[in-house]
């Protein structure tokens, strides 16, 4: 049984059919890359998994159970964390405050009032930062002062800490410098090594071949090819991304 299974997922926006029957499986402990041209439907697909959109047809199951999320919050509760392209970090808050946002541990002040357990947040954050080796100076700095890569690391660390089953990364390296991309790839592998299923959306094929265990190619709302990354090449992927296979079929 796969960790996450998507069967025949369909979605239309008005007259435009954006997803026309997508099938996808994700195993625990693997990085599955989803590639495809602009507008292929990648973001739309993952927004169904993370509870942003409601599907028109098809099924999604998580750990063998059929699921249907009404909100990102529900998806999150079920163990699906999404690191959005915009990262959604609160700039003015510290790294620790961001990682724990909405789930702060509390203690009783003078045995009465519940207050945020700042000591614990600080400790856990430090432990987490050390474990992901992201060169974040310390958990008390505000996110506003961090680089793009460091911010990405905070977002991923958040997913890591909260024991997500599935982590979705939508173009995590789009705005990063070369050095920082390496770090995100490392973090993604680290997540997978902990048994998390990672969906990794990207455009840079060199990077995709490096990070992914398997690669799914989307073309016009369909998954047209799935392969293990060691069994494919950039050239082959580009063929599928540009609709080469479809043209061959229709020519036949």
């Amino acid at each position: 049984m796969s960790l996450l299974e998507v069967r025949d997922l369909k979605k239309r926006f008005g007259a435009v059919e954006v997803l026309c029957g997508v099938d996808l499986t994700l195993e625990a402990g693997e990085v599955l890359a989803v590639v495809g041209d602009n507008g292929a439907g990648k973001s739309t697909l993952i927004k169904h998994i993370s509870g942003v959109y409601r599907r028109d047809g098809g099924d999604i199951s998580l750990g063998g159970e059929a699921v249907s999320f009404d909100s990102p919050k529900e998806a999150r509760r079920a163990g699906i964390e999404t690191v959005y392209q915009d990262l959604a970090l609160a700039d003015e808050l510290s790294v620790g405050a961001n990682i724990f946002l909405g789930r702060e541990p509390t203690r009783r002040w003078l045995g009465l009032l519940p207050v945020i357990d700042r000591g614990r947040i600080q400790q856990e954050t430090q432990r987490l930062i050390d474990s992901i080796e992201s060169h974040i100076p310390d958990g008390a700095t505000t996110v506003a002062g961090l680089s793009g890569g460091q911010r990405q690391a905070v977002a991923i660390a958040r997913a890591l800490y909260w024991d997500a089953k599935v982590v979705i990364l939508d173009e995590p390296t789009a705005a990063l410098a070369v050095m920082e991309r390496e770090n995100v790839i490392k973090l993604s592998r680290m997540l997978a090594a902990k048994g998390v299923g990672v969906i990794y959306i990207g455009h840079n094929l060199v990077e995709i071949l490096e990070v992914a265990d398997r690669i799914a190619v989307m073309y016009r709302g369909r998954i047209v090819h799935v392969t293990r990354s060691e069994e494919t090449t950039q050239e082959e992927l580009i063929k599928y991304m540009t609709g080469y296979s479809e043209r061959r079929e229709s020519a036949a």
């Binding site: 919050k73 959005y84 959604a88 609160a90 808050l93």
Partner: peptide
């Protein structure tokens, strides 16, 4: 500075979307 409510105010003012997604 000490309660969740206070922290959520800062979070909301800092990034409304992030606060919403954090289930605040």
């Amino acid at each position: 500075s000490r309660t969740r409510t206070g922290r959520y105010m800062l979070a909301m003012g800092s990034n409304h979307e992030s606060a919403r997604r954090a289930g605040i």
